[in-house]
Design a protein around this nucleic acid. Structure first.
Lengths: 201, 201, 201, 201
DNA sequence: GATGAATGAGCTTTCATTCAT
DNA sequence: AATGAATGAAAGCTCATTCAT
């Protein structure tokens, strides 16, 4: 009943809370990217991070929480890349599509990781929120604005989203599975151009 | 505690080998669609089919083999829908994109199932082959033919594939997650038209 | 992802389902009696029964289900002992109180086990039902009958129950904790007599 | 997943040692009463008290020590209630039984808590001492005095204890589990009267 | 006194697969 | 063909307690 008293062990390097937290996150990301979310176990993360199980759970609520924390960063980094430099409709659309391809080709494992989570979210409600961000992005309102200004076709956002980003996603899926060999720059441009052609007013 | 105690299953009527095989496949499909491949256990399939564990393993090589068998059917059904009626480039492209949307909106769970497997295939080698079929389809050679005839743009197949089918996939992902509400027919047409516009010569 | 294939191991003695089930129950009872329900782990039961973890879960829903199954037997055995031979009020009351003491002194560990579960039931809803049986017994209607016949005092059943069985329970608690040394027979009689004196009409 | 992430606890105002000690005790009592001793974790107490883990261990030797400290108070409060106002045998007996019921109906959660600890003490040696006090009380010598004076029956103390207090305990168990609805006063009197009737000389 | 990160053995439970019958 | 008991590694997670700071 009484839990066994903690045994004396080799004292571990003492990190500050934030350092430890970071080291766990980093290790988790490494594992998720390397073997995928599902195949990664807490034990893998423990070994990779040098933290103990308890420490991991001290900082995070479990595997899912680790993934969520990482994804929030990923989404941020990636929408950074996709933000239009200028503010014309064309810049917006091309940046969204081209930026996604560029980012994904630069971070192929991270792309696959986000893609895995998006798929799991269908069954695992814990990922619903983060999957939303992954699926639709936040471009809806901006697109609506350009629709009003007659700069782009008046399409429902899901359709527009699909026309703009669908090819990019698809291409990244092929590319990260090693099935596409086109030079990154050309693919990115071809897809960005096509995206704009597909929705321009 | 929440789990059911070892259940005495009511004795089922004797089936022939083929009937049993079919009933297992059907049950497996039902489970996969309902809860996803990962969340489905052999036990779920056992209960749903009325077969015994041993029987399932007698007919199939395991969970993966069940999924593979089902997917082959799915892919067949779906490429049926995507086959061009005519044989012009336009018909080919529009049938591929529009047919996919039509099929997916008609079989949303099946679409999600194939999508799940495609994602899992990244980590699970057992699904590599079937994932190939899901990812690239078999349109490559046909497209090349139309390229030669100058009917379509001279794009590498992965890019062309992305332009033609990427929007369709993307749209289905949104739609099967309940995030798209456009009328099936309109969406299907819009996406088919866009696909053709994106690649026509 | 794919669970590792079961390794080849020394073939275990094959028991029929019922034999295995029984051996698990027996082992669980032994553990629960020896170290208490809380202190007993599934692993203890596994070792004591010779079954594997999986086997235990094949037959039972977990620790709680094992306890419940055992308690149902215990309650049966004990209410057997407490059943009045005759059918007068006096016989009924004396058999209830005296029988409980006799049974409890004969099965001290089983008494303690039931007592432990009754206590845990306060917090653990899974034991609510079985705790009901342990707490109030089923004598209410019979008592009501004797009330109507003016053979016993007109007391609410909880009070009557307390007067009749409270001393018996209390005594068993002392005795099974090694704090009472009175000869079983005398104690049983003293308590049975007192019970009757407390409620006779 | 369900667990709260590492929380930044709002800095609390500085307490003196004694205040801190008290606040921990209070919080522990609240938790123990609400969810039971076993189900309460140090973390629960930490959150409820606003103290840190280290602080709790600075003032107390652990979960068990907290319970013990609280129980000593509880026992005091309750034997206060059970002390005979007068000093006749009848007053002594009635005060013991009636006082227990009165106290228990006024402090139902505290009664359940003591009952839980008494049960756990069977397995957990750390509670042996406090369980002794809970089980037998301290009335033995007083009873012996009245035996000598022929005011009460010459019964071994365990039996007398059972006759006097057994119904009270039993009733409280039913009542605190919500199974008894009799007016507190009437029940208390009925049980006190019966106790006296059971042992008077 | 106070902090809270760190510990890690140990818990319950799952489940794809095997194989004696 | 069919049965279903048996397997057991491995998973995620808990939590009383310690101790460097």
């Amino acid at each position: 009943m009484a839990r066994a008293a903690a045994k004396k062990v080799k004292p571990r390097k003492r990190l500050t809370g934030d350092e430890r937290r970071e080291s766990i996150l980093e290790a988790a990301l490494g594992c998720f990217l390397e073997k995928g979310y599902i195949a990664t176990t807490i034990n893998d993360i423990r070994e990779a991070s040098g933290a103990t199980t308890g420490s991991i759970y001290h900082f995070f609520d479990g595997k899912g929480a680790l993934a969520t924390a990482l994804l929030e960063d990923a989404i941020a980094g990636w929408s950074g890349e996709s933000q239009a430099a200028g503010d014309t409709a064309e810049a917006f659309v091309k940046a969204a599509a081209g930026g996604l391809v560029t980012w994904g080709l630069k971070n192929p494992e991270l792309f696959r990781f986000t893609d895995e989570i998006r798929t799991l979210a269908v069954t695992a409600p814990e990922f619903a929120e983060v999957a939303d961000a992954l699926s639709e992005g936040s471009g809806g309102p901006t697109y609506a604005k350009f629709v009003k200004a007659k700069k782009v076709k008046d399409l429902p956002w899901p359709v527009a989203h699909s026309l703009i980003l669908g090819p990019a996603y698809n291409y990244l899926r092929l590319a990260t599975a090693g099935r596409a060999r086109v030079a990154a720059k050309r693919a990115s441009e071809a897809i960005a151009d096509a995206a704009w052609a597909a929705v321009k007013g």
